[in-house]
Amino acid sequence: INIQYERLREWYGLHFPELEKIVRKYTLYAKLVSNIGRREEFTPENLAKLDLDEKMIRRISNTAKNSIGIPLSDSDLNQIVKYAEHLMETIKEREKIEQYIDQTLSEYAPNLTKLIGPKLAGKLIAKAGGLRKLASLPASTIQLLGAEKALFRALRRGTKPPKHGLIFQHPAVNRAPKKLRGKIARALAAKIAIAVRVDVFGTEDIGDKLRKDFEKKVKEVYKKASMKKRR
């Protein structure tokens, strides 16, 4: 989808180059191109049909009037519009797949999904080779799952080993300061180990509690770090 969007932006940018600076979301960009097409048709009336807010409507319509883009022939524009329509169909199909995955994981691994979300849960399960295999792994292995190459490279060279693997994709880990990521990743891995084992061997609904406990632990890590700075 990202590659398709880049091509659409490159081609349509010849006609209306300013649009990409106003519209940052590729879904909305493709929607505008597929539904309106020609730059001269970016009128307040046409934009209002796409449920945009008034500020966005005024900005796009005013910019379209003074655009420095080149005119396009009907045949060229039609090809670009068809490409935008194809991109919209691809986006809708991906959304359907994501909804299916979300629903399936909520039933298959409810506690793990509540703790870290369906996308990361799915990646960890796939990397481990299944939910039961993931449940058999210790927290320390879960923490580095997906970083095996970096770990072996560090062992060979005698350098520092990685502090996280796939769980780096969790917002609490990747948004944390570099010095705190290891502690937060370790805390998250411990909660994941509990969640997945309950999903496999138990029936309890503890996903929300684990998430709250993890969030509390993250706050404690930040608090301790700030106290050390004051000393």
Rank of each mutant, 00 (worst) to 15 (best):
D199Y: 10
K219C: 04
P118D: 05
V173K: 01
I1V: 14
I184T: 02
K65H: 07
D76N: 10
A109S: 15
I142K: 03
A48E: 14
K49M: 12
E107M: 12
T63W: 04
K163V: 03
S75N: 12
E6T: 08
P161I: 00
E89K: 14
R157A: 15
I3Q: 14
Q143K: 15
L155E: 13
L112K: 10
D51A: 15
A172H: 08
A135V: 08
E54V: 10
A172T: 02
I101A: 12
G158K: 03
L120T: 04
D199V: 10
L166P: 05
K178E: 13
I194M: 05
G182A: 15
K31D: 09
A189K: 00
L210F: 05
K31C: 08
L14N: 12
V81N: 00
D76V: 12
P171M: 03
K178R: 14
K212Y: 06
A135G: 11
H86N: 12
G130P: 02
R94A: 04
S106P: 03
Y222T: 05
L131C: 06
L166C: 06
G122I: 05
L124D: 05
L47W: 14
R157H: 12
K163N: 09
L137G: 03
T141E: 15
P17F: 09
A30G: 07
E18L: 13
R181A: 02
A172N: 09
L124S: 04
K82G: 05
P177G: 03
E41V: 04
G129I: 07
S136L: 14
S226P: 00
R9G: 01
E93I: 12
Q99P: 02
K133F: 11
V23Y: 07
N78W: 02
Y108P: 02
R175G: 14
R7I: 14
F168M: 05
E148C: 08
D205P: 06
K133H: 13
T159R: 02
G37I: 01
P110S: 06
P171W: 07
N174S: 01
S226Y: 11
K127M: 13
K96F: 06
R181T: 01
L145Y: 04
L50S: 10
Y12T: 03
H15E: 07
V23A: 06
E18N: 12
E204F: 13
L134M: 15
K92A: 15
A109T: 11
K228S: 14
I22R: 11
A193K: 11
R38T: 04
D102T: 11
I184E: 03
V173A: 05
H164I: 00
K209H: 06
K127D: 04
T159A: 02
G69N: 10
K96C: 01
K114W: 04
Y5A: 09
F168K: 08
G129H: 06
R132P: 01
Y100H: 13
K183P: 00
G117K: 09
G129A: 09
I97F: 06
G182T: 03
K127V: 03
K21C: 06
L105D: 01
P138G: 00
